[in-house]
Amino acid sequence: MYAPPSFRVKDPEELRAMIVRLRFATMVVNGPEGPVAAHLPMVVDATRPQILLGHVARANPIVTLLREAPAALACFVGPGAYVTPAWYASKREHGKVVPTWNYIAVHARGRIEPVDDAGELRAIVAALTDAMEADRPEPWAVEDAPADFLAGMLKAIFGFRLHVTALEGSAKLSQNRPAADHAGVVEGLVASPLETDRLVGALMRKRRQ
């Protein structure tokens, strides 16, 4: 991942916290004809933080590659927002400014471990479900589904663990801009009608504190 020093996130705990927040990844592996990608939710294993858990539909062509336990790259990309130079105080001072894009992202590299055991697959599904449902007033649990129905659904998915060997992250949130420019971007984003803009503005405000 390319990330200038002012944007690079190095702390593994912070990177894992970003993954917990983002929860959805584009996972890429190499196939005979080039890179193959799948889009899926992934979570950090509660007992082994160096492992990410996920599953895809068995009908997904990527499963054939995942069964070979390949090296993989999981890309978690958070909210992003266009930043117009009109928000910079510097524009009014000297005009030497250009547009940019603010965002957060984490890359997790590692090796896939296929999970075929029914009990382990159910545990992966439960971990994903519990993570996604945690903030709900009445969380849904895997046990809420009829056992025979759940068994049939589990047969339709392929589970895996990604053993992470390298984590890289970038939080590009105008840290390289003067305070007045940063404040102008935050003001512009939080006033935007786009929810993603407002989320980036909130992240900028929190990280600056």
Rank of each mutant, 00 (worst) to 15 (best):
T84N: 02
R208S: 13
C75Y: 13
A71N: 10
V43N: 08
K96M: 07
R8T: 12
A145F: 06
A145P: 04
T26W: 04
A151R: 14
A179Q: 12
P146N: 09
A17I: 02
K10I: 11
Y88H: 07
V56L: 02
H182K: 10
V43C: 10
V185H: 04
Y2V: 09
L167Q: 00
M132V: 01
E33D: 12
Q50T: 15
P193H: 11
V77N: 11
I112N: 10
A126G: 02
R177C: 03
P99L: 02
I157P: 06
N176V: 04
H163F: 02
P193A: 11
R48C: 13
V9G: 06
T100W: 05
P85K: 09
T129P: 03
K172S: 02
P49E: 15
V63N: 08
E14Q: 12
L66M: 12
V56K: 05
D135L: 11
A59G: 14
D11M: 06
G201F: 08
L199G: 02
A123L: 13
A179Y: 01
A59W: 07
V43P: 09
V97P: 07
G80C: 03
A145G: 08
I104V: 15
L154V: 13
G110M: 11
A183V: 04
L66H: 04
Q175T: 09
R58T: 11
